[in-house]
């Protein structure tokens, strides 16, 4: 029973919402446009830094969000400028390299006064503005089997904000993907040359998709930061790969794919951990090995999904973006 409650807790957690948001951003890149952005964690990290540093330096909350968005836009422009004219795997290598640059710079000791080095920025420095907006009482509240604080840190309030944002972004994705603009993006995904022949600027449309998805990733980063802390190493390459797993599992180019993927990913990870702890003896699977064991299954799941059901759970095989 505890195992199921833990899984339920993971389903609703702010981290799950944050990854769903990042995967919605990636859905703009990969699902709609077919761009291989392997640096979504970099966008998230920049969003976190932009927001947390602005708040720490005394800017109001809206300004912090604007800074995060602005930083992600600039990052997207910089990445897209050299690579969007090149073959898809160049974008993949450049985005993953750039995301790693952000992480290396962020965790470097030489910028410790700004980014906090490898220890990062403490939650107290930036969580206040959002938490002070909370309408919930300042105490622990129990609903059904779940108990969280009303407004501080990993709270009911953060859950409400995070999932509202997810819902809003889903509506935006749904409207945009069915708009004339979204149809151009899908056209680029299916056949770039055909769209170019229609007189559209493929380069500029790709750039727009890259920037919008990246900004959404940065928003996901802000939500993640409120659930835990701003630490560069939590946004390394594995994070980007998890977001890909989430998107591909749920189904690329679908509206609900990222959310379904994120909920399944995190609850399944929690279930694997709990079940292997409870049923596999210590001599075969020591407790230190449970975390790697779970993540090894994630990697295996990613392989199996891509090979056997590349369209994901909700996807449509005809809307598949894997054209080299």
């Amino acid at each position: 029973m505890d195992i199921l409650i833990n899984a339920l807790d993971q389903m609703l957690a702010p981290a799950t919402a944050a990854f769903a948001i990042a995967a919605i951003g990636l859905n703009f890149h990969f699902g709609l446009t077919g761009l291989l952005n392997m640096g979504q964690a970099g966008f998230m990290l920049l969003g976190m830094y932009g927001y947390a540093i602005s708040i720490r330096e005394g800017l109001p909350m809206w300004a912090g969000i604007l800074v995060a968005i602005g930083v992600a836009m600039v990052f997207g422009l910089l990445l897209g400028w050299p690579t969007l004219k090149l073959r898809g795997d160049y974008l993949a290598i450049v985005t993953i390299a750039a995301a790693e640059i952000v992480r290396y710079v962020g965790r470097s000791n030489s910028l410790i006064d700004i980014t906090g080095g490898s220890l990062g920025i403490k939650g107290n420095d930036y969580k206040d503005p959002l938490e002070s907006l909370s309408p919930f009482p300042d105490e622990r509240i129990t609903i059904g089997p779940l108990t969280y604080h009303g407004s501080a840190s990993d709270s009911w309030w953060l859950r409400v904000v995070a999932w509202t944002l997810v819902a809003a972004l889903l509506v935006i994705f749904w409207r945009l993907s069915n708009s004339p603009w979204g149809r151009v993006l899908k056209g680029i995904r299916e056949d770039e040359d055909a769209v170019r022949a229609l007189g559209k600027s493929v380069y500029w449309y790709k750039m727009q998709a890259l920037i919008i998805g990246g900004v959404i990733g940065a928003l996901g980063g802000i939500i993640w930061a409120h659930g835990s802390a701003v630490v560069a190493d939590s946004m390394g390459r594995p994070t980007t790969f998890w977001i890909w797993t989430i998107l591909l599992m749920g189904g690329a180019a679908t509206v609900f794919g990222p959310v379904l993927g994120s909920v399944l990913f995190w609850s399944a990870l929690s279930l694997v951990r709990a079940v292997s702890k409870a049923f596999i003896p210590e001599s075969i699977l020591p407790s230190t090995a449970i975390e790697p064991f779970g993540l090894m299954l994630v990697g295996t799941a990613l392989i199996l999904i891509v090979v056997f059901r590349p369209q994901g759970i909700l996807g449509n095989k005809r809307e598949l973006a894997f054209h080299a």
């Binding site: 790969f241 890909w244 090894m296 994630v298 990697g299 799941a301 392989i303 891509v306 090979v307 894997f322």
Partner: peptide
């Protein structure tokens, strides 16, 4: 590209 993502999964595993 699909194979590339398979290799990413393999790398994680």
């Amino acid at each position: 590209l699909q194979q590339m993502i398979v290799s990413i999964g393999l790398s994680l595993a």
